[in-house]
């Protein structure tokens, strides 16, 4: 009697956990594990050839023209990461502080800053592409309206501004996310601590740098790590705004685009090239995994447990 109940219970638990685990294995874990294996084979279109050790990695990193493009794209990813660190996370922290004061209208401002976050990257990209249009776009129209018409330029059409223009669109889209994560961190600071600080100093700067910033460290860890992963996975916005080749002249090329082009081909590049494509994917994956773990561990150390 007891044993049949036990097997019944075991079956019941299995019935609950096996289907979700099966989905995860089939469509998440298995493809990622295979991605590592694929990088070591030669590929003829969609057919797998011989095991070639590190040939694909060598081609992607050291052989022309792959290597040049890899490095070009990688540099752009680094720029994107630091630019978004300032424009998105930096501004997000300042905005969170402003919202935290709960002045009149804070609720409205909170809803406004998060509104773009719910929009599709496709909508954001296409919208800003229209705004950046050299003749009819709203950005140049605004500059002309405030008497800065001389600054009007083809933002997406020239090498010097294209990547920055896309970064700005990204910051507009996502700044609400770090803002609200930081805000949640600030709201969790116990009021006794803040009252005690108020007794000691009137300086807002001391309060922010010595008390608030260290106490929102857990939020900073999450936001920095997510931005790092996002910056080196960056694909959809540059794809929509700069095109699959990272135009103009590869000025907006990033690793995500380059990986996509190598793997699936494009107008300018040849057909799909799964070998180097897989090698690129593995390198990007390892880079993200290693650096984001280091970032997380280092940032965790400065978090204070309340």
């Amino acid at each position: 009697m007891i044993s049949s109940q036990l097997t019944g219970r075991r079956l019941w638990i299995a019935a609950l956990v096996v289907p979700p685990i099966a989905f995860m294995c089939l469509f998440l874990v298995y493809p990622i594990l295979s991605a590592f294996a694929y990088a070591f084979y030669e590929w003829h279109g969609l057919a797998r050839g011989d095991f070639v050790w590190f040939d694909n990695f060598h081609r992607v990193l050291f052989e022309f023209p792959f290597s040049e493009r890899t490095i070009n794209a990688f540099k752009h990813n680094i720029f994107v990461f630091f630019a978004l660190m300032v424009l998105q996370n930096g501004l997000g922290f300042i905005l969170a502080y402003c919202l935290w004061r709960e002045l009149w209208g804070a609720r409205f401002h909170r809803i406004a800053v998060f509104l773009p976050v719910v929009l599709s990257t496709v909508i954001v990209g296409l919208l800003w592409k229209l705004f950046y249009h050299p003749l009819f776009g709203a950005v140049n129209a605004t500059l002309r309206a405030v008497g800065l018409g001389s600054l009007a330029q083809p933002w997406l059409g020239q090498d010097s501004t294209a990547l920055t223009a896309i970064v700005v669109a990204n910051a507009w889209h996502m700044v609400g996310f770090p803002t609200l994560v930081f805000l949640a961190g600030m709201q969790r600071i116990p009021s006794e601590i803040l009252d005690a600080v108020r007794m000691e100093t009137e300086s807002e700067w001391v309060k922010m740098s010595k008390i608030v910033w260290p106490l929102v460290a857990p939020s900073a860890t999450v936001v920095f790590t997510l931005l790092f992963v996002g910056a080196f996975n960056w694909f959809e916005l540059p794809f929509i705004m700069g095109g699959v080749d990272g135009s103009p002249h590869g000025a907006t090329d990033v690793l995500g685009l380059y990986f996509y082009r190598t793997a699936f081909g494009s107008m300018s590049a040849s057909a799909e090239n799964f070998g180097p494509g897989s090698a690129l994917a593995v390198l990007i994956f390892l880079f993200i995994a290693v650096v984001s773990s280091v970032i997380t561990i280092r940032l965790r150390k400065r978090e204070i447990q309340l």
């Binding site: 956990v17 995860m24 874990v29 298995y30 990622i32 295979s34 996975n233 994956f285």
Partner: peptide, 26 residues
């Protein structure tokens, strides 16, 4: 262990496994 298995999935960027995923879906 099962909870850990799901948590590990939080950090995996599936986009980078698009080549094997493509072949598998095909």
């Amino acid at each position: 262990l099962i909870l850990l298995f799901f948590l590990a999935g939080l950090t995996l960027p599936l986009k980078l496994a698009i080549i094997p995923l493509f072949i598998q879906i095909r």
